[in-house]
Design a protein around this nucleic acid. Structure first.
Lengths: 212, 212
DNA sequence: AAAGTATTTTACCAATCAGTACAAAATTAA
DNA sequence: TTAATTTTGTACTGATTGGTAAAATACTTT
C-alpha cells in the first residue's frame, strides 16, 4: 500500500524510489470518471475501467484502493471539475440568479456531447444491488449536501431582502434540485441542449421574480 | 415452452393437461415488480427474484421466459397497476388539472411506504452496463411515450382554449415530465410525502393558471 | 555494483451471474 | 391403468464478477 495515492506532485522534486508509475493518476481517474458517468457504479466492470484507463487491475488497485474508493475519488473529481456549475452558482448576487445559473448550467452541461449525458450524482447509483448500497448512500449524502447548501443560500437571500418575506427557502431549493435531477433523466433520454434549456426557462417561471 | 404464459384464466374452464402450476402468476409477477422497483433491472439478481417470488429458477424461466422478459412484463403491470396516476390524469378537464393530478399523484405515490420509493420507469435502468442496454432503451421509449401523450393532451387543451394561445405544449409537457422524474430521485433520497407535495405545488406555479 | 523499493505483467482465485439438463412428481386424456 | 404432458426441485453449466499472488522490471539509494 503506497502512502501517496494522489499527491504525486508534491514539493519534493526528487523522483520517488522504486519503479516509476507508467501512467498519469489524474488522466486515469478522468477516464474512470467517464466510465462511471456512462454506466453507473455497478454497470462499470473492472475490465471496462482498466481498458479505458489504459492500465491493468493491479495498477488500479495499487493506485486507488478498490472499485468503491475509485468511484469516490471520481465523484470528488467530478464536483471539482472545471465545468462544474452547482457550487460556483452560489456566488451569484441574487437567489434568482443562483437558480438561473444552476438550471441553465445543467441544461448545457447535462447535454454536452463531450461527455456522457446527465449528472454523475444521479447516474452513478440510483437503484442498485445490496453490494452497491454504501455507494448509493454516499451519492444520496452528496445530493443532500447540495440541497442544504442551496437552502442556506436562499435563506441568506431572504434575509438580504432579495427574496420576498413569505418565500420558502426549503421549498424553493427542493424545487430547483428536483428540476436539476429531472434534467439529468431527460438528458439520458437523449434530449438536446435546446430542449433542456426550454425546460429550465419554464421552471424559472415558478421562481419569485428578482426584487428590483 | 408453454403457449399460455399470462392468460391462465381463459374462457376454457377445464384444467389444463400436465402438472398444475403451484404458484399464482400475477402475485409472482407483483413480487418481481417490487424487487425491480427497489434494485433496478441489473441490481436485481435471479436469487433476489426467485426468493421474493417464492419459486425456483426453472419455474421462473418456464413462466416468464427470462430475466429481461420478466422485467418487461413487470413494467407493463406497473403501468396498469391500480394506483397508476399518469395516464388516468389525461382525462382531467383542463391542462392545469392534468398537470396538477400528475404532480400531486407522483408526490403521494413516489413516497408511499407500501412500496419502494420513486418511479419504476426511472429506477429500473438509468445508467447500466452494455448488457442492460436493451432494457434501458425500452424504458426510455416508455418515458418518451408518456411525454408524447402529455404533449398531445396540452395541444388539445390549447385548441380548446383552456391553455393560452401563446402556450408551448412541448415545453410545458417537458417541464412536467422533468419534475415528475426529479421527484423520483427525491423519493430515493428519502424525501417524505409532505416535501414532495411542497415541491409539486411550487412547480405548478410555473404552469399557466387555468383560464376561467 | 548491490540492495532496496515500487510498479508492471501474467496468471490465478473464490464468488456470483444468468440460464439449463434432468429426473421426480402431479395432473389429464385415453 | 397406461400414456402423454407439464411443473417441480436439484444440481449443474460456462461466463463474468471484484480482487490478488507472484515474479519480472525499472528505478533510487547506498
Amino acid at each position: 500500500m503506497s502512502a501517496n495515492t494522489l499527491n504525486s506532485t508534491t514539493c519534493n522534486n526528487s523522483a520517488p524510489v522504486g519503479r516509476p508509475r507508467a501512467f498519469d493518476l489524474e488522466t486515469a481517474l478522468q477516464k474512470a470518471l467517464e466510465v462511471f458517468w456512462q454506466k453507473g457504479y455497478e454497470g462499470a466492470s473492472l475490465p471496462d475501467l482498466t481498458e479505458a484507463m489504459g492500465i491493468n487491475k493491479p495498477s488500479l488497485y495499487a493506485a486507488f484502493g478498490n472499485k468503491e474508493q475509485l468511484f469516490l475519488k471520481a465523484i470528488e473529481r467530478y464536483e471539482n471539475r472545471p465545468s462544474a456549475f452547482f457550487y460556483p452558482s452560489m456566488t451569484e448576487p441574487t437567489a434568482y440568479r443562483v437558480a438561473e445559473r444552476i438550471l441553465l448550467g445543467a441544461a448545457a452541461e447535462h447535454s454536452n456531447p463531450l461527455h456522457p449525458p446527465g449528472c454523475l450524482m444521479v447516474q452513478g447509483a440510483l437503484a442498485c444491488s445490496d453490494s452497491g448500497q454504501s455507494v448509493k448512500d454516499a451519492l444520496i449524502a452528496r445530493r443532500k449536501a447540495g440541497f442544504e447548501q442551496l437552502v442556506q443560500r436562499f435563506e441568506q437571500a431572504k434575509m438580504a431582502g432579495d427574496l420576498p418575506p413569505d418565500a420558502d427557502p426549503q421549498g424553493l431549493a427542493g424545487f430547483i434540485i428536483t428540476v436539476l435531477q429531472g434534467l439529468s433523466v431527460q438528458a439520458t433520454n437523449g434530449a438536446c441542449t435546446e430542449q433542456l434549456h426550454n425546460i429550465a426557462r419554464t421552471a424559472l417561471k415558478a421562481f419569485p421574480a428578482p426584487q428590483s
